[in-house]
């Protein structure tokens, strides 16, 4: 009985790892199109990959690299992260400004209308 369990575990592990390798290969194959595309198409294509696909490629890329290459990769990542943060902060500022001004404009208009109505009714009373 114990042997049967061991065999089952072994079969399941092999099948699972096979599926994983297959899925990984399939994901990586998607990036072939990216490498073959021209600069403009490749740039647009980057956005179409899911987080999991990007992660998969990142792990694949890292696996065959030396410690020196991995450190170099970290330096590049650090620079890109700082750039992305600065860009996001700049964009967030414009989002904040646009929405605040729009809401302010609408409320200023409502208050002005309210004031006009009030003035009109006061004039009528007098």
């Amino acid at each position: 009985m114990k042997n049967l369990q061991k065999i089952l575990v072994l079969i399941l592990t092999i099948t699972a790892s096979g599926t994983f390798v297959y899925a990984q290969d399939e994901t990586l194959a998607k990036f072939d199109v990216y490498f073959e595309a021209n600069e403009m198409d490749a740039k647009n294509m980057l956005g179409s990959y899911s987080d999991a696909e990007l992660e998969s490629y990142y792990n694949f890329y890292k696996s065959g690299k030396s410690s020196h290459d991995l450190r170099s990769l970290k330096i590049i990542r650090q620079m890109e992260m700082r750039r992305a943060d600065a860009k996001a902060a700049e964009r967030l500022f414009y989002v904040f400004l646009a929405i605040s001004l729009l809401v302010l404009l609408i409320f200023a208009f409502i208050i002005k209308m309210y004031g006009m109505q009030k003035q009109l009714l006061n004039e009528e009373k007098q």
Binding site: G47, K87, A88, R91, L92, Y94, V95, A98, I99
Partner: peptide, 8 residues
């Protein structure tokens, strides 16, 4: 592509 700016 546009990040948070697209939320405008």
């Amino acid at each position: 592509l546009q990040g948070v700016a697209q939320r405008i």
